[in-house]
């Protein structure tokens, strides 16, 4: 026997919302599982270790100083974009005119890249 149900505009809207909400909450995190950890909007809290990048400022006269990167960030998170260390280097170049170049080491024990400021 086929049941007949009466759909008011309100129940239709609620049904559309329920289906849409469930689809987004299942498909988005499921899709993000195929990308490197951790991704935003995927409920991937504390899912992977993230090495802290090391930035060394090279100043005039050959002076070198390792930067405290947290000084330039509002809050460091594991799910920030992979290129944030490079963007941070450009940012330091822009706000500190004494810096001539920045050495960026995104992963410990890997070669550093040199980013000239000018």
């Amino acid at each position: 026997m086929t049941e007949s149900v009466h759909w008011s505009w309100r129940s239709r809207a609620a049904a559309a919302f329920v289906v849409g909400y469930v689809a987004v909450q299942l498909l988005v995190p499921a899709g993000l599982l195929f990308l490197p950890r951790a991704q935003r909007f995927g409920w991937q809290m504390y899912s992977s270790a993230h090495p802290t990048p090391v930035l060394v400022a090279l100043r005039g006269g050959g002076a070198r100083d390792t930067l405290d990167i947290d000084h330039y960030l509002a809050f460091r998170r594991g799910d920030m974009s992979r290129d944030y260390a490079v963007r941070l280097a450009w940012h330091v170049c822009r706000i500190d005119r004494d810096v001539e170049a920045i050495e960026v080491r995104r992963i410990p024990d890997r070669p550093a890249s040199l980013q000239p400021c000018r």
């Binding site: 950890r37 951790a38 995927g42 991937q44 809290m45 504390y46 899912s47 992977s48 270790a49």
Partner: peptide, 18 residues
């Protein structure tokens, strides 16, 4: 999804918790 995303080598090795 919190559980599924933790099924990876870095987390299971304990490095993340460390």
């Amino acid at each position: 999804f919190a559980a599924l995303s933790k099924v990876n080598e870095a987390y299971l090795s304990g490095i993340m918790l460390a």
